[in-house]
C-alpha cells in the first residue's frame, strides 16, 4: 500500500516534489475521527444543556456549589446551531453520543495499535531528547510565532510543537475524554469503581470530560489555523490522497 514510509527524511527530496506523506490508516482514521468528534461535540453540548452546571466530587446538583454555570439556571447554555439535534432533545442527543462513542473509542484504539505496530508513533511522533531541549523548544516557538514553517524535505518531519500537539491529543485528550465518559456510567462505576475514584468522583469526571472536550476544540481551532497558514490545498490533499508537495524554500 505505502509507496514510501511517511515522513522518511530523504536527502534526494527537493522542494516542489510530490511525496506520499500519510498512510491509508492515518488518512482513514483522521476523517472518521474528525466527523465523529464533530458529532460527539455537538451532541455533547446538547446533553450539557440539560444541566449546564459543573461540580467537583462525587455528587453535585442544583443545591450544591457549581464551579461553572453557563447560561441562567434553566436557560439554554449552547444554541441550536451548534447542537445535535438543533432543537432540545436530551434523549436524541444521548442516542447520537452513546452510539458514536463506540466509533470514537474503537477507532482510536485501532489507530493507536496500528500506529504502534507500523512505526508511525516511533518514527513520526516520538519526541527525541534533542527536541525536548529548551533551546530547541524556544527556537520552534519563535519560528511559529513568526509563521516561518519548515520548507523542503524538512517539512515532511513533524516539528516538536506539532508532535506535542498530536501526542497531547492521541495520548492525552482523546483517552481522557473516553475514560471520563465511561466513569459517568452508573453501571460501569459498579464494575470498575477504581476508575471513578481515580477521577475524584462522578461529578469530577463530568467536569474533566467537559474540559477535555474544550481542549479538543482548542486543538481543532489551532490545527485548522495551521492548515490554512501552511497551505490548505496541499495539506488537505495530503490527508485525502496521501500526496504532499514539499513547500518551496522561502525567498
Amino acid at each position: 500500500m505505502d509507496a514510501r514510509p511517511e515522513a522518511e527524511p530523504a536527502a534526494e527530496l527537493r522542494a516542489g516534489e510530490l511525496v506520499l506523506r500519510h498512510r491509508l490508516s492515518t488518512r482513514l482514521w483522521h476523517w472518521i475521527n474528525a466527523a465523529t468528534l464533530g458529532v460527539m461535540l455537538m451532541s455533547g453540548l446538547m446533553i450539557f444543556n440539560a444541566h449546564p452546571r459543573l461540580y467537583w466530587g462525587h455528587y453535585g446538583a442544583n443545591p450544591d456549589h457549581a464551579w461553572l454555570t453557563i447560561g441562567d439556571a434553566d436557560g439554554i447554555a449552547f444554541p441550536g446551531w451548534i447542537t445535535i439535534p438543533s432543537y432540545y432533545s436530551l434523549a436524541d442527543a444521548r442516542l447520537w453520543h452513546l452510539a458514536f462513542a463506540w466509533v470514537l473509542a474503537l477507532g482510536l484504539l485501532a489507530y493507536l495499535v496500528r500506529s504502534l505496530l507500523n512505526g508511525h508513533v516511533r518514527r513520526d511522533l516520538h519526541i527525541t531528547a534533542a527536541e525536548w531541549a529548551p533551546r530547541h523548544l524556544l527556537h520552534d516557538i519563535a519560528e511559529h510565532a513568526r509563521l516561518r514553517f519548515p520548507t523542503g524535505a524538512a517539512a515532511l518531519k513533524y516539528n516538536v510543537l506539532q508532535k506535542l500537539a498530536y501526542c497531547g491529543v492521541l495520548f492525552g485528550l482523546l483517552p481522557l475524554v473516553i475514560v471520563t465518559g465511561l466513569a459517568m456510567s452508573p453501571a460501569l462505576d459498579a464494575g470498575w469503581p477504581w476508575l471513578v475514584d481515580l477521577l475524584g468522583g462522578r461529578q469530577s469526571a463530568r467536569s474533566v470530560h467537559f474540559l477535555a472536550a474544550a481542549g479538543l476544540v482548542l486543538f481543532f481551532l489551532v490545527h485548522l489555523a495551521m492548515v490554512l497558514l501552511a497551505g490548505p490545498v496541499n495539506e488537505v490533499r495530503s490527508m485525502l490522497s496521501g500526496w504532499y508537495r514539499l513547500p518551496e524554500d522561502r525567498a
Binding site: 446533553i47 450539557f48 440539560a50 444541566h51 452546571r53 461540580y55 462525587h58 455528587y59 453535585g60 446538583a61 442544583n62 436530551l90 444521548r94 459517568m184 452508573p186 462505576d189 462522578r202 461529578q203 463530568r206
Partner: peptide, 12 residues
C-alpha cells in the same frame, strides 16, 4: 448510594 440523573447531576 449515588443517584445519577440523566440530565447529569448526582446526589448521594
Amino acid at each position: 448510594t449515588r443517584h445519577d440523573c440523566v440530565e447529569g447531576w448526582s446526589a448521594i
